[in-house]
Simulated assay, not measured.
Amino acid sequence: MTRKVKVGIIGCGGIANGKHLPSLSRLEQVELVAFCDIEVEKALKASEKYGTSDAAVYKDYGELLKDSSIEVVHVCTPNASHAEITVAALEAGKHVMCEKPMAINSEEAKLMVEAAKRTGKKLTIGYQNRFRQDSQYLKKVCEQGDLGEVYYAKAHAIRRRAVPTWGVFLDEEQQGGGPLIDIGTHALDLTLWMMNNYKPKAVMGSTFHKLSQNKEAANAWGPWDPEKFTVEDSAFGFVTMENGATIVLESSWALNTLDEGEAKCSLSGTKAGADMRDGLRINGEAFGKLYTKQIALGAGGVAFYDGNVESDADMEARLWIEAVVNDTEPLVKPEQALVVTQILEAIYESSKTGKAVYF
């Protein structure tokens, strides 16, 4: 890749500074030329650290989109504005990387898919866990057919006490939900991708507000304010697919359990199984005996050398920009992310009505 790709960032908060900006700044072919945030100070700070010398700063994303030199836009705003900004950016002729979840409901997610098709511009969603070493390895195992037909799976997104207390994470109106839409979305995306199955048939779900009202609670980021905690603290789903395959999805920010694990999946197939619970393990039987293989993912093995392993966020950014430059499909397709959104929405709906949601 030789030509420079001019990128604009809309939303300069935690996820932009924690993932998108560091990874994009390490790509020689990327120029970060525009920064936008409703809190202009955040955009200014990001511009000073990551932008070109003449980078522009905006409060209104509509003004940023008027710059015809910007080829790619990253949408890193609260969930409720993902669809509106993404559709506007696509219609302004930009390729869009939108942070997960795709949208707060399937109706808005569909508008995003339609806008991408209508404009001919690329759209991808920030499911960076697909780019982890264990995920990449397990995907190859699945594609090779080593597991056979995967007919049962678990999507794990369990935190014992790690409620994000900053920003708008606890605001249902801005976020559309709590741990299910925040971290459950990663686990479900991984699971569907491994199974290569995007045809849900029915969903049952439960959401809980059992620990959210605890005052002075133990928490990784300090106690939360119960009055501002308007989203669920845990959520669980039971998904059956058209071909009969079954997925159990578990998610929590606060749950009385020692069985923690985030952005992981377990797969059971007709030939073998796999899980990410303790590193990456493959299990099966051979010659009348059971076996468990632990996959050695480290690149080191030599004293004082751990290997130069590309991080998941760096690989995500690199492959996304390569897809733009080479006019190829991004790894995370918007149609796949739409199905994730539809299932999450169905879990919330089922929890409210007490009934199964059928597709």
Rank of each mutant, 00 (worst) to 15 (best):
L258N: 12
V141D: 00
W221E: 06
I181C: 00
K264A: 11
A157R: 01
A155V: 06
L147R: 06
H156T: 10
A162T: 05
Y137P: 00
Q174W: 03
E216D: 15
N256R: 08
I158M: 13
E232F: 09
T207P: 02
Q213E: 13
L249D: 02
Y151W: 15
V248D: 00
A155P: 10
S234F: 04
Y152T: 09
E242I: 09
E227D: 14
V231Q: 04
I247M: 08
S251W: 03
A218V: 14
M204K: 15
Q133T: 14
W221L: 03
C142M: 14
R161G: 00
G244P: 05
T230G: 01
E250H: 09
W224K: 00
S251Q: 06
L147N: 06
F208V: 12
S234L: 06
V168T: 15
L147E: 04
D134M: 12
Q133Y: 05
L255N: 04
R160A: 14
A187C: 02
V239F: 04
A155L: 07
E250C: 12
E262A: 11
S135N: 07
V239T: 10
S251E: 08
L190Q: 02
E260G: 00
Q144M: 11
Q175H: 02
D171I: 05
V141C: 03
A187T: 03
K199L: 05
K199T: 15
D134V: 09
Y137W: 14
S266I: 10
G145E: 05
A220Q: 07
K201P: 01
K199M: 03
E260A: 08
E173K: 15
G145H: 04
G176C: 02
A235M: 10
G184Q: 02
G184H: 02
G145A: 09
G222H: 01
A202E: 12
R160C: 07
H209N: 12
D182Y: 05
V248K: 11
Q213N: 15
G177D: 01
E173L: 06
E173M: 02
L190F: 04
F169C: 12
